[in-house]
Design a protein around this nucleic acid. Structure first.
Length: 591
DNA sequence: ATAGGGTTAG
């Protein structure tokens, strides 16, 4: 009987020399590579450029620690050629050593070696990772001189470079010049829009891509899901979910994590959990996403349970995981649990708390009403000068528990630490108003006008007829504007009849007195909800996503809306979900 | 015989 030949890997092409075959068999694994390296040196083949280049690229792909080994290989060569430089530049930028990649590009140029499209893709990627637009433009001019501007790989890299540096118009211009963009080029353009906050444009480009029959892959879908998160487009999110299932696409951990995040941020935390349970491979990031999802919905106990389970499974939580779990504790009033977690972070995992962790702790103590403890924590436990985020959390607690005198002191601290942020002036002004110090309100307003500081622009989006509709404060751009305002007026009248009284104090201070109530009535979330109620069938859930934190008045008003319109209304603000039903909010007013 | 572009968690 003939025995099958025992071979661990398929045989590399027999045209290759034994040494080259050994190299291919080693692959991007450090130990086998070093063995082949030794063999090269012993057999005197070390001067072979192709062998050396292949060795170097494999070394570069062999994990983060291998980059220095690749460097070592390169430095042993006295007269490196263009191929070897290209490999080294690529390896450097891939391992996050972008600045070194640029230095090697310079050395290559000084050595008088010819640059190719291969050179440029790697160098441009290095520039993109550094957001080094000025250097990037110089490199761009080099490639124009050398005539590589119609190479599709180079064009795609340029789109990413300009996109990452924030110059989306140039990115789009380059993209539009690509005759028939590849899947990767489409993905790059979509992600550029998404990363720059132009969600609607990202979705539009995705539809253009579908129109020209380019099949999306998992990278496309990951960007698309991120877009769904931004505007709360659950319909599109579900479409992605079905697309993955119908095509039998591999539910890899990145795509799976994006789906978990999408469901959680679109208000369907149980669906997020379903995806989480289905995921074949779960890493720390997937666990963190799920924990954070529970936290956002005020399910601190479930977040804690998952955190414990994660540790039992032997996974190592990282600093981001701790932000998620601490924030979950803060939003659910789990003070002693949170304090334990904070200690565990330092003792069991040797992590050094960052500002965000301190913010969570202050937030947690403050929300729960332990204002003195929170202040003490700032003074005793936060190292160095506490940053603006710490004071903002403290200020939120002062407002929530109506200690306006302390609030004023905290807000003044906040402004002292970061005098450039317009949002901080608004906070200071609001707390002065709440403390009844109207003279101060006026002077803060004058300072803002004098220094030309503007508030961040708020928006809310609501899903109607399977599409996200975006509203700004006092928005009149919607085709049904008149009807929406009329409907909202009527709604507010009914709300007043059952006891709603607008809280004028919540209005941004820079408006004139008579404008205040008007502005309050037309905050973007109120417009979005009015449009949602008038455009959907009785009893349908209204889902709104807002980019900023809701104001006090809106929070109260929406409770009344849920009563007079008999609707459940879910609002995701900057920090968490608010689920309004029968005049109550799921956050139990702890927000 | 040698080298390519895009994607994830607060």
């Amino acid at each position: 009987m003939e025995l099958p030949e025992q071979r661990p890997r398929p045989p590399p092409s027999s045209r290759h020399s034994p040494t080259y075959r050994a190299l291919l068999a080693a692959g991007p694994r450090l130990r086998p590579l070093k063995q082949v390296h030794a063999r090269l040196v012993v057999s005197g083949l070390y001067r072979s450029r192709p062998l050396l280049t292949k060795l170097l690229t494999f070394a570069g792909d062999a994990g983060p620690s291998a980059a220095s080994y690749a460097r070592l290989l390169f430095n042993a060569v006295t007269d490196p050629d263009a191929f070897l430089f290209n490999s080294l530049i690529r390896v450097s930028s891939k391992s996050g050593l972008s600045a070194e990649a640029l230095l090697f590009y310079r050395r290559m140029w000084m050595a008088g070696l010819p640059r190719s499209n291969y050179t440029f893709t790697s160098v441009i990627k290095a520039c993109a990772d550094l957001s080094a637009l000025r250097v990037g433009r110089v490199v761009h001019s080099h490639l124009l001189v050398d005539g590589f501007d119609s190479d599709c790989y180079v064009q795609t890299a340029l789109v990413a470079l300009y996109g990452k540096s924030g110059d989306i118009f140039v990115a789009r211009k380059i993209f539009d010049r690509i005759p028939s963009p590849s899947l990767v080029a489409w993905n790059t353009m979509i992600s550029v829009y998404e990363q720059n906050g132009l969600t609607q444009e990202a979705i539009r480009v995705f539809h253009m891509m579908k129109d020209v029959k380019v099949e999306p892959d998992s990278a496309t879908l990951v960007s698309l899901l991120s877009a769904c998160c931004h505007v709360g487009d659950l319909h599109l999110g579900k479409w992605v979910r079905n697309y993955v299932a119908d095509r039998g696409l591999d539910l890899n951990v990145i795509l799976g994590t994006s789906l978990i995040n999408m469901y959680a941020r679109c208000g369907q935390v149980h669906k997020a959990r379903e995806v989480f349970d289905e995921l074949p491979n779960r890493n720390v990031i997937a666990w963190t996403a799920m924990i954070s999802g529970y936290g956002m919905h005020g399910h601190g106990d479930q977040a804690m349970e998952l955190f414990r389970q994660m540790r039992r499974c032997g996974l190592v939580p990282n600093d981001v995981t701790f932000v998620a779990i601490l924030s979950a504790c803060a939003h659910s009033g789990l003070v002693s649990e949170g304090q334990e977690v904070f200690e565990c972070m330092k003792l069991d995992y040797g992590l050094v708390p960052r500002e965000e962790h301190y913010v969570c702790m202050v937030d947690m103590l403050g929300r729960a009403g332990f204002l003195d403890e929170a202040l003490q924590f700032i003074h005793n436990s936060v190292p160095g000068v506490p940053g603006p985020a710490v004071w903002t959390a403290m200020l939120g607690a002062c407002k929530m528990h109506r200690d306006f005198d302390l609030g004023v002191k905290v807000a003044e601290q906040l402004l002292a630490v970061d005098p450039e942020n317009p949002g901080h002036y608004v906070l200071l002004s609001n707390i002065y108003a709440l403390a009844g110090r109207m003279g101060r309100v006026e002077s803060v307003r004058d300072i803002m006008i004098h220094r030309g500081l503007k508030k961040q622009i708020g928006y809310s989006s609501v899903e109607v007829d399977n599409a996200a509709h975006v509203f700004h404060m006092g928005d009149t751009s919607h085709p049904q504007t008149m009807a929406i305002y009329h409907f909202l007026e009527q709604l507010i009248r009914k709300m007043r009849e059952v006891g709603y009284a607008p809280e004028i104090d919540s209005v941004m201070h820079e408006l004139e007195e008579e404008e205040r109530e008007f502005a309050l009535r037309f905050h973007s979330e109120k417009l979005a909800i009015a449009f949602g109620i008038m455009s959907t069938r009785d009893g349908a859930l209204i889902r709104v996503v807002k980019n900023l934190r809701m104001c006090d008045d809106c929070h109260t008003a929406i409770k009344f809306m849920s009563v007079v319109a008999s609707r459940e209304i879910s609002v995701r603000d900057k920090h968490r979900f608010h689920h309004f039903k029968d005049g109550l909010c799921s956050c139990q007013d702890f927000w």
